[in-house]
Design a protein around this nucleic acid. Structure first.
Lengths: 148, 148
DNA sequence: ATAAGAGCTACAGCAACTGTAGGTTCAAGC
DNA sequence: GCTTGAACCTACAGTTGCTGTAGCTCTTAT
């Protein structure tokens, strides 16, 4: 039998192995297929998905991007970029820079939050709710240092 | 007419004002009602919601907790705590401390991420995708410093 | 031949809203 | 009294990125 898919014959692994080797769940792989991130794979005679090495690499790429915090739409762009290796990498750089800026912003927000929460928990001396500084601070915005 | 609700007659504002004064959307107020965070308010003759001061304070409390990053379930607990002012505030303190720990952890994760993304974008020298370090790093986990 | 385990589809649920459609009510101006 | 536009109503779909479940079928080892 000749392979109809480029994938077939090179590795021929099932969805469970794909999940295991990429560090995600089986359902996640199917979900990526559903949303077009992963191509529809070949099937064996029993209608079960069979993947090749290229698909595994693609899945690993996706998972790696997810670990970097990229959203699925950004990953879609990154995938289409990496499929066309002769174009300028400006778009990829822009995506990464934009994401980095968002991460930095989020860190700043969380740091402000951390300070407020620290202040709040430090102010709690035990006792009853009526005297609790935590509850009081949650009820009264004027007790906050900055805005949030 | 005598007020049937404790709320009524004290302020008597509509849902639009509630949203405006608490800094959220009208739908969000209705959503909080749907999920039991806010009580069902009185209605006027035209079936429109009428709120009193107590409801506004409750909504502000909820929004403030949200600004602190608490989830709705945590807020539910905090609300029921603040309704019973004679019990120990240990539970409130625990909730805040637990949340603080989660925030600290998240900051650490994002800082690792920021370093990796900075390394990635710095490595990009322009040019074409085939030579792009961004795409390369996304494809190859071994180029990462730590785990993520 | 059988039984465990893996795979299949289809769909519901999570968090915390947000947006839309298609209608009703209110308040102000004439 | 009438009109008009803003605000309000309900009900439901969509967002993001999965995860879990039910009720099957298929593979593989014994």
């Amino acid at each position: 039998m000749t392979a109809k898919h480029a994938d077939i014959g090179l590795a021929d692994i099932g969805i469970g192995e794909m999940a295991r080797l990429s560090g995600c769940k089986v359902q996640t792989v199917r979900y990526y297929e559903e949303t077009g991130l992963m191509p529809e794979p070949a099937r064996n005679s029993g209608n079960q998905r069979r993947y090749g090495r290229a698909s595994l690499e693609r899945l690993k790429f996706i998972r790696h991007c997810r670990n970097f915090g990229f959203g699925l739409n950004a990953i879609r762009e990154l995938l289409s970029l990496s499929e066309d290796p002769n174009q300028s990498c400006e778009a990829a750089d822009k995506l990464a820079s934009k994401h980095l800026a968002a991460v930095i912003l989020r860190i700043e927000q969380l740091q402000t939050l951390r300070e407020e929460l620290t202040r709040m928990t430090n102010a709690c001396a035990g006792g009853i709710v009526a005297d609790c500084r935590v509850v009081e601070m949650l009820a009264d915005h004027s007790m906050c240092d900055g805005e949030h």
